[in-house]
Simulated scan of single mutants.
Amino acid sequence: MRGVDRRNFLRLTVVGAGATAFTGGLWQSAFAGPAQPGAGPYGPLGAVDANGLRLPQGFTSRVIARSMKEVAGTGYVWHAAPDGGACFPDGDGWIYVSNSEVPLVGGVSAVRFAADGTIVDAYRTLSMTQINCAGGATPWGTWLSCEEYDYGCVYETDPYGRNAAKKRSAMGRFKHEAAACDPVRKVVYLTEDQSDGCFYRFVPKVWGDLSAGTLEVLVGSGPGEVGWKQVPQPQLWLTAPRDQVAGALRFKGGEGCYYSDGVCYFTTKGDNRVWAYDAVNGVLGIAYDDDLVEGGGAPLTGVDNITGTPGGDLYVAEDGADMEINLITPEGVVTPFLRLEGHPDSEITGPAFSPDGTRLYFSSQRGSDGVILGTGGVTYEVRGPFRS
């Protein structure tokens, strides 16, 4: 199908699905059309700073960790290939956790900050796991670290380093990517990094305890009304979970996942889309698609990890492309928020805000040298006047 025709077809599909409007704060009118380029709330990107970042006026950056080097003042060596991450409150300070996407040793590390942002500690919370990619925070203060291989598991870890990590096999064994908790419906949404992957939700028997429950897969015919069906054999299987249920919706490489106000947003790298699942009404829509961008080139490609703010802004990291984090506003505007120069063979991973919303953390997984095992990875902090 020719480009213009395909764009028109996709737009009609999305708009035609919109009998029910989204309930979430970000996309009250999601089916009016996916996000389009425009001027962002922070203005244009400035010149490259000392850390290689181009940021809007009023924002500053610092490097907090480098792979295979000690985190300043802690004696702890930061892991290779930093990937998914999240922040957790810690008294007057906070903690940033980060996965390590390498084989055999994988796991999770954490950095602890004082109230003024000073780094006071760094340590391991999970070791000897495989290709820990993304994950998600839980409402009860744990981090779900997801293994990205065919028989991978979800591990529930303690960001504070007090309790041992626990394997949560009931959440399914597949090529996990990210997780997002929905405290209203008491489920955990899960993405799958396969070219024909699925979108899942785990329904625990007891909310707050992920040791037992039911894994379900999203079913339907595409954007519009969708439903859920139970995966018969999520743990021990000869047929992969994504192939066990007739009518399961397929997605081209599931990546990041973020829940807010009744809507779960997730990204797919194979078609550069940000999807929006309206959990209240059981409706699936497309919040962003680079094929639906009008009037020029798409500002956001290589979609990957995703996070958001209480005010409804989404922040989407790029795997390669321009090495940007793009902002999608509640008004449906997509625009670059930052760009990292000099890292052409890397990807941006692990975007997460400090609990007070004034600092954004993320990593360049392979750094400027682009080594596949990420020994040159760099983890950054951006500070500035983020809107709430």
Rank of each mutant, 00 (worst) to 15 (best):
D116S: 14
D116P: 05
G117Y: 00
G117L: 03
V120I: 15
V120T: 15
V120Y: 06
D121F: 06
D121M: 11
A122K: 00
A122G: 00
Y123D: 08
Y123M: 14
R124Q: 15
R124K: 13
T125H: 02
L126S: 02
L126M: 08
L126C: 05
S127L: 13
M128I: 11
M128N: 11
M128V: 11
T129L: 07
T129H: 03
T129W: 02
T129Y: 02
Q130H: 14
Q130F: 12
I131T: 10
I131Y: 04
I131G: 00
N132W: 02
N132K: 05
N132G: 05
N132C: 15
A134P: 01
A134D: 13
A134Y: 12
A134F: 14
G135C: 13
G135K: 13
G136R: 03
G136E: 04
A137M: 07
A137P: 07
T138Q: 04
P139D: 12
W140K: 08
W140G: 06
G141P: 06
G141L: 09
T142H: 07
T142W: 00
T142E: 03
W143M: 11
L144S: 03
S145R: 01
S145C: 11
C146K: 01
C146P: 02
C146H: 04
E147Q: 10
D150G: 10
D150R: 09
Y151F: 08
G152P: 05
G152C: 07
V154A: 03
